[in-house]
Every structure is written in structure tokens, then in C-alpha cells.
């Protein structure tokens, strides 16, 4: 139990670090192109997808049942 919690915390920190990298220079600049894909600007697709992915990962980490 104790260990599970610790692993969970470490994974969340990893999410934080990944998130900091995703939403920052230079990755942002890579997607900051004047173009649309499927009718949506590339930058918006990137930011919202990454955002949602982070949230889903966080939910998975939090909600995963502790192994008995």
C-alpha cells in the first residue's frame, strides 16, 4: 500500500515534468505553424490533445485499483 502510493506520486511527478516540456518552447514552436489539419489549426490540435492526454493519464494513475 505504502509502496503503491509512492509509485503513484512518482508517476504524477513524471506527468508534471512531461507536461512542462510539452507546453513550452521549443515543442510549442514546432506546432506553431500557420496551417489547419481537418479544419482545425495545428497548434490548437496539439495543445488540446496533449492536455487531454495528460488528464487521461492522471486519471489512470489515480483511479487504478491497488493490487491486492
Amino acid at each position: 500500500m505504502e509502496k503503491q502510493q509512492r509509485v503513484r506520486g512518482q508517476r504524477l511527478v513524471a506527468i508534471f515534468i512531461v507536461g512542462c516540456l510539452l507546453f513550452n518552447y521549443p515543442l510549442l514552436q514546432l506546432f506553431s505553424v500557420n496551417n489547419i489539419i481537418g479544419g482545425i489549426p495545428v497548434l490548437y490540435i496539439y495543445v488540446f490533445t496533449a492536455w487531454l492526454a495528460l488528464i487521461i493519464l492522471m486519471a489512470l494513475i489515480i483511479e487504478r485499483r491497488d493490487k491486492k
Binding site: R8, G9, L12, V13, I15, F16, G19, C20, F23, V47, W51, L54, I55, M58
Partner: peptide, 11 residues
């Protein structure tokens, strides 16, 4: 986005 990132550290 800031609060989203911080939420990961809320733990």
C-alpha cells in the same frame, strides 16, 4: 495549463 500541471503535484 498551469493548474493542470500543478494538479499533478497536488499529490
Amino acid at each position: 495549463l498551469g493548474p493542470t500541471l500543478m494538479a499533478a503535484l497536488w499529490w
